[in-house]
Design a protein around this nucleic acid. Sequence first.
DNA 1: AAGCGGCGACTGGTATGGTAGTATGGGGAA
DNA 2: TTCCCCATACTACCATACCAGTCGCCGCTT
Lengths: 241, 241
Amino acid sequence: MPPQRDRVLSRIEAGLDEPIARRVFRELRTAIVTMRIRPGEAVSEQDVADQLGVSRQPVREAFIKLREAGLVSIRPQRGTFVVKISVRQVFDARFVREALELAVVRRAVAELKAADITLLRSNLDEQTAAAADKDPGRFLDLDEAFHRTIALQVGCEHAWRVVEDTKAQMDRVRYLSLADATPVPRLIAQHVAIVDAIEARDVEAAESAVRLHLREILTSLPELATRFPDLFTDDTPANLR
Amino acid sequence: MPPQRDRVLSRIEAGLDEPIARRVFRELRTAIVTMRIRPGEAVSEQDVADQLGVSRQPVREAFIKLREAGLVSIRPQRGTFVVKISVRQVFDARFVREALELAVVRRAVAELKAADITLLRSNLDEQTAAAADKDPGRFLDLDEAFHRTIALQVGCEHAWRVVEDTKAQMDRVRYLSLADATPVPRLIAQHVAIVDAIEARDVEAAESAVRLHLREILTSLPELATRFPDLFTDDTPANLR
DNA sequence: AAGCGGCGACTGGTATGGTAGTATGGGGAA
DNA sequence: TTCCCCATACTACCATACCAGTCGCCGCTT
């Protein structure tokens, strides 16, 4: 008898007219980011289709999108596997994100209106409230919203979409460090510094504030990699795919 | 009788073990970028599948990737259409590309070895040769290789992949301006300026050289939009820079 | 002649069938 | 006991079938 994989996915309810493939993708993406499906684990079209109550077709399309997000590795005639967290890939994603958010914040310094900044400040207030309530999940959402809001305020919808596509790797790490009581106050202070620099129209300060903030992940990463060795690949050599 | 669309795609020959879906994607991508399939035109899964001699399945997957590249618009139960060139989308793609290549060139200034620079110089020589031979197609390839080489030399494979995914929009414009005898010598001079700045370890100069170069497309864009109005959607004004 | 309504031929989305290739485990040979 | 080999049970890829919407053409009505 096969190993009888655990049920970690809940059946997709019919009704909404959002394409099934997209829902399958989102379901799988969050399942992977939150480690309900662990790195290294195998997922199969048939198995996922059965658990979700859909056919293999949309599952296959979801797999393809997950591969492009760097979350799974599809090996023909072999199987599809959730890739382990690769320090290298997290670095690469972080590099891209930093490059884009630097460009965004440069625009923000030049273009943001007072009303925009007020909106950001209110988001910051909510962040401190979430921190006081010890609600890290809510803080994560506000954090994401903070960065997204800046991008959208300066008309960088496309750039933000690229960031979203890229940062799946980083999200898994952030989820890991969520339990650790990450220094949320420090992150909030960094956010405040970014807004302050934007308001002061100080490009240099804004750039370095963003840099500092987005490099925060690098400090926790090595520790996490040694603490959860089974979740990471030791990608020193040129590993095969 | 249906309009009997022209055959613009050549049958895919069996044999190679590259996945069919990928080949279909590349075939369609180049057909769109080179305007063999014109903006606004409809493409159908069934029609493409027949022309290429494959089933609808891989064609469908190719369509999805084309949508993510921003080249087609899939409207369920209606059809799939090659999107017209949108000045806004070209701007957005250019913005992302500039952000990433700026980050790459910063690394290049810090990390490139003499051997790397020699390699770039030889590419530049080939560019001048191609210009002398009036071979714009070859120049386009060398241009692409130039930018890609810098990215790979500093270990930014992932960032370059993001650029590739994003710049499809720009490629159509470049193809349009290819006939125009674009000022190839000027582009080569800009490339030389980038390499010079890298070799001189001058970050400021390198950044502004890249900026200047990647903003070149903005000069030809308005003229092209007015000369080929049927290829563009009219969504220009409002945004500057 | 003009307007409108319904039928039919498309579309992409989903489900299912068929195939080649690969990991695996157990039994037979050394 | 150990090692090899092959049957078997998977895998993802490709092809095909079915479905529900959409839209245009054509004939009927006024």
